[in-house]
Simulated assay, not measured.
Amino acid sequence: SSSSSSSGAPPKYPSPSPNSRKKVRCKNKEYGQCYNQEHVCPATCPTFCQVDCVTCKPVCNCDYPGAVCQDPRFIGGDGITFYFHGKKNKDFCLVSDPNLHINAHFIGKRNKNMGRDFTWVQSIGIMFDKHRLFLGAIKTSEWDDAKDRLSLAFDGEPIFLDETLGSQWSSTSKPQVIITRTSETNNVIIQVQGKLKIMAKVVPITDEDSRVHNYGITNEDRFAHLDLGFKFHALTSRVDGVLGKTYKDDYVSRVKIGVAMPIMGGDREYASSSIFATDCLASKFDGGLEETSLQTMDHASIKCASGMNGQAVVCKR
């Protein structure tokens, strides 16, 4: 309601000043007018944005193709927004390609008034070559952004990152995995050389979110979850998965475009038996036995940043 602001009380979440917001640049030289120009992240995502080189504007990562955020709201490689609710405490395959497979573990809360759970992505398991990378949000009661709720592991070994901006971990194996903190806690960028980049942030369900959406969240469990932004470098034309299939050149979205919350079904097709299983019906993973990728095709004709025509965000920056 607007009564609190009209009474002169300060808003609950004051808008961050432009000085405290992250500054970002377009790194794609093909966009000469925009290249390397500095932009300030929007107030709605002060520490978590990127520049859309085409429009030359800063965009929240949750509003960009490859985003998986909130009550899983996806933005496909084709730029179309849809929801995939899955089921709580189950795993679903987001991306499956011959040498890249990504599953997500969903947590959730039953809503008595709806035929489905409210769900969020709590963790992801990424497989490539013979490696396994895990990224998860740790369960928490009262939320404090100064406390790190990130859980990371590579090939079964936990990863510990200093809680300082810019602290980094990298694998000794190839393709190299580099994980960098983009704030002291709860924010990282993960890069797997030649394969993908993930911007990840652990976020809670706030009282405000809960009130607006009727989630019924209390301080018993804040349902800490991941907001994710994916960029893929070398998907093949065989790619599948809830998000993966939206990157196919010939993909035509099945979601009903006119409705307020277009929902993608396919729970059965994308269900996995665990976070590191590649047994979903849509699986294409073979551990990289066939290394034929879009990289071998001519990239010159692909424009990188618009994100609105299929393969748009599937190329190197």
Rank of each mutant, 00 (worst) to 15 (best):
S3A: 13
S3W: 10
S4Y: 11
S5R: 08
S5D: 04
G8V: 09
A9V: 09
A9W: 11
P11Y: 00
S15D: 04
R25M: 10
K29Y: 09
E30V: 06
G32P: 08
Y35N: 11
N36E: 15
H39K: 14
V40R: 11
P46T: 03
T47P: 00
V54C: 08
T55R: 11
T55Y: 09
T55H: 08
P58D: 06
C60V: 03
C60S: 04
N61F: 13
Q70R: 12
R73L: 10
R73V: 11
R73D: 00
R73N: 05
F74W: 02
G77D: 04
D78L: 12
G79F: 12
G79L: 13
F82R: 09
D91M: 00
L94M: 15
L100C: 02
I102A: 03
N103Y: 02
N103E: 03
A104D: 02
A104G: 15
A104Y: 02
F106A: 01
I107T: 15
R110V: 08
N111G: 03
M114C: 01
D117P: 14
V121S: 08
I124C: 02
D129N: 14
D129I: 00
D129H: 13
K130M: 08
H131F: 10
I138W: 01
E142R: 08
A146R: 12
L150P: 05
S151C: 06
F154C: 01
F154M: 04
I159A: 03
F160E: 04
L161H: 06
T164C: 03
L165K: 07
G166I: 05
S167F: 06
Q168I: 10
W169E: 00
W169A: 00
T172Q: 04
P175W: 12
V177P: 02
V177A: 02
T182L: 09
T182R: 13
I190S: 05
Q191R: 14
V192D: 07
K195T: 05
L196Y: 14
A200Y: 03
V202M: 05
V203G: 01
V203M: 12
I205P: 02
T206D: 02
D207G: 02
I217T: 13
H225M: 08
D227V: 02
L228C: 01
G229M: 06
K231F: 14
K231C: 04
A234P: 01
L235E: 06
T236H: 13
R238P: 02
D240K: 15
G244F: 07
G244P: 12
T246N: 14
Y247H: 10
K248M: 10
D249I: 11
D250K: 13
D250T: 15
D250C: 07
R254N: 05
G258A: 09
A260T: 11
M264I: 02
R268Y: 10
E269N: 05
A271H: 11
S272K: 03
D279E: 05
L281K: 13
L281A: 09
F285K: 00
D286F: 07
E290P: 00
S293E: 09
D298H: 15
S301M: 14
I302W: 11
I302V: 15
N309V: 13
K316G: 00
